[in-house]
Amino acid sequence: MGFINHEKVAGKMASRTAKNSFVKGLFLAATLFGLVVLAILIYRIITQGIGYLDGDFFTNFASRRPENAGIKAAIFGSIWLMAVAAPVSIILGVGCAIYLELYAKKNKFTRLIQMNIANLAGVPSIVFGLLGLTVFVRMLEMGRSVLAGGLTMSLLIVPIIVVASQEALRAVSKDIQEASYGLGATKWQTIRRVVLPAAVPGIITGVILALSRAVGETAPLIVIGALSFVAFVPENIWSGFTVMPIQIFNWTSRPQTDFHDVAAAGIVVLLIMLLLMNSIAVLIRNKFSKRY
């Protein structure tokens, strides 16, 4: 049988397997590259920032001298921003997801909304800043306030919440919904008492991931005019404010390298806050998902 020339195949085999294992090494190196960069980044930031991370750093306001600089105004600003953005974006995002998954008919308009959300998720964040500047700051005359910033941020993260909530709602088994209808429950009763409780872990995970995106976002807030040198804590939603990323940006863009170390300290605080938020998301997911 001469279909396969075994000698020829054997002759090429060694180089083919060698190539396979060589390239496999390259692929592995590429995979590890990201992890190595992450390790360097975290190591650099911690070693740079550790010197400024003390109690004063959390209780002091911005200062012209690096050793007195603190992040208090920025931490409170970020919390205030979340307090505005979270409820608005949750109502809009989860509401939109429930509509699309459970109420909307499969027609052109529904497809339009769906496509629109996919495209909104791809719009650069700075463009949302321009929208906020025109609509919230100028047209609705909110000024450069926490309210304007929070509303801008919620528009930015709504698409993320919609997509995550839709996935969570879609995953709820049809059987328990049918069972609820079978017991005579109306549509809204079924959604409120059966579908939503089952989908809550997925929705909360999506919400927290979206909010952590908002905590780290800088550009749109610079555009709507959040302040960069703030020595007060916001008192209400009409106050001016700064947030952690803007404070870090302000320190980073100063020429004195001492301020770069202060910026590193600020980044450590920001990353710890994000880590906390994400751990809460994981905890909630684990705690609730046991029930179903």
């Binding site: 995979t31 990201g34 992890l35 960069v37 992450l38 360097i40 980044l41 650099r44 930031i45 740079q48 991931l209 952590s212 995106r213 905590v215 780290g216 976002e217 800088t218 550009a219 990323p245 870090i248 940006f249 980073t252 770069h260 910026a263 590193a264 980044i267 920001l270 990353l271 994000l274 994400n278």
Partner: peptide
Amino acid sequence: VVKPILEVLAGIPTIVYGFFALTF
């Protein structure tokens, strides 16, 4: 193990990357 770590890389705020670019 690797996929969640890569996701962490994707979740780091861009301001942190900017700082990393300038100072490292």
